[in-house]
């Protein structure tokens, strides 16, 4: 501390005499010493005060009191600034961790859309934040000629939702072989999720199994928004109603399943509530809107339909969608 004072006094007394830019520059370089020795802000004030008192021997007492006051303020200020900085560091650490987690999630939950001759499949899944609370899972069993589709929406966002999603994916991967019934798969998924999640957390899921040979889709729902079915012969949509409780609410839940046969140019649209729960717009209205848009572009390939619908809804909501957004279209 002694050497610091001597150096400081030298620079300061130079400056009051010559007021040169170079001396100011030296003053700023002096800061390096302060940082190296980890000098607190109040000590810097004290060094200045001692230097001033040594340079000007006849200072009024009141000035000395003023320095006391400044030191007092700086002790508190230094303490609070440090607290504030560690908050910022913490925030930054969280941000980095979040980014890593998001990257891992993207790798883990990456969905590949299978290509099969008998069915045109399109998908879009856009997260509102870094992590997607929606998840789409396909499995095509070439030997058995079954395609299974799971569309899930985890309530809650961010990291907890992502963890829950990974669990769901693991569950799906162990369950999906051959032609398990959707009702059975939902029942097991519910058990897995109910055992491992928090009270306020749950998942809605649509699960379908498409028999490529018979063109029959067998589907079940766990609290999921009804899928839309377009009947091309009648040029009309209808809801694929199928009741079932959300996954993760109760331990033992039974699910039902239904069948529908797809004819040429028929398609099925599975969406998450980010598509139908538009703010300031009734669900019925937004479902009608969705039907209108889909109807107007029904001749396009499934993937293009998904993308067009997304763009159109985004435009209608002033590019301000509020939830993860997922559409899957299965078109014969």
């Amino acid at each position: 501390m002694e050497q610091l004072l001597i150096d400081y006094k030298q620079i300061l007394s130079d400056y009051v005499v010559n007021r040169k830019e170079e001396t100011l520059y030296n003053g700023q370089n002096y800061v390096r010493q302060l940082i190296q020795k980890n000098v607190a802000p109040e000590d810097v004030i004290n060094i200045h005060r001692k230097a001033v008192e040594e340079i000007y021997t006849e200072l009024p007492d009141s000035l000395s009191h003023a320095y006391d006051f400044l030191i007092e303020v700086m002790v508190q200020y230094g303490m609070k600034t440090r607290e504030h900085q560690s908050l910022l560091i913490q925030k930054e650490e969280l941000r980095i961790e979040m980014e890593i987690a998001a990257r891992i999630q993207n790798i883990l939950l990456n969905t590949t859309v299978p290509k099969i001759d008998q069915l045109d499949i399109g998908m879009i899944s856009e997260p509102i934040r870094k992590m997607n609370g929606d998840y789409v899972h396909f499995l095509f069993d070439e030997e058995e000629d079954y395609l299974s589709i799971a569309v899930a929406d985890v309530v809650g966002k961010g990291v907890p939702a992502a963890l829950c999603m990974s669990m769901l994916k693991n569950g799906l991967e162990t369950l999906e072989y051959g032609n398990n019934d959707p009702s059975y798969i939902l029942q097991v998924l519910n058990r897995i999720i109910e055992k491992s999640v928090d009270d306020g957390m749950f998942v809605s899921s649509f699960y379908g199994r498409y028999d490529v040979n018979s063109s029959i889709l067998t589907y079940g729902s766990a609290g999921h928004e009804p899928a839309l079915y377009f009947n091309s012969k009648e040029n009309a949509f209808c809801d694929l109603e199928c009741k079932g409780l959300l996954l993760g609410v109760m331990p033992e839940v039974k699910y039902s399943q239904s069948n529908i046969r797809l004819e040429e140019n028929d398609f099925i649209m599975i969406v998450t509530d980010g598509v139908t729960e538009l703010r300031d717009c009734d669900v019925i209205d937004s479902r009608n809107l969705l039907k209108e848009i889909a109807f107007s572009i029904r001749h396009l390939p499934a993937q293009e339909m998904c993308e067009k619908i997304y763009l159109e809804l985004q435009r209608l909501q002033d590019y301000n969608l509020e939830d993860d957004f997922t559409i899957v279209i299965l078109k014969k």
């Binding site: 002790v75 303490m79 609070k80 440090r82 607290e83 560690s86 908050l87 560091i89 913490q90």
Partner: peptide, 18 residues
């Protein structure tokens, strides 16, 4: 713990340094 939010609430890491 200064890197912990709870620590900052009561200001104890700062006090310890003083």
């Amino acid at each position: 713990d200064e890197s912990n939010l709870k620590g900052l609430g009561a200001g104890l890491p700062g006090v310890r340094r003083l």
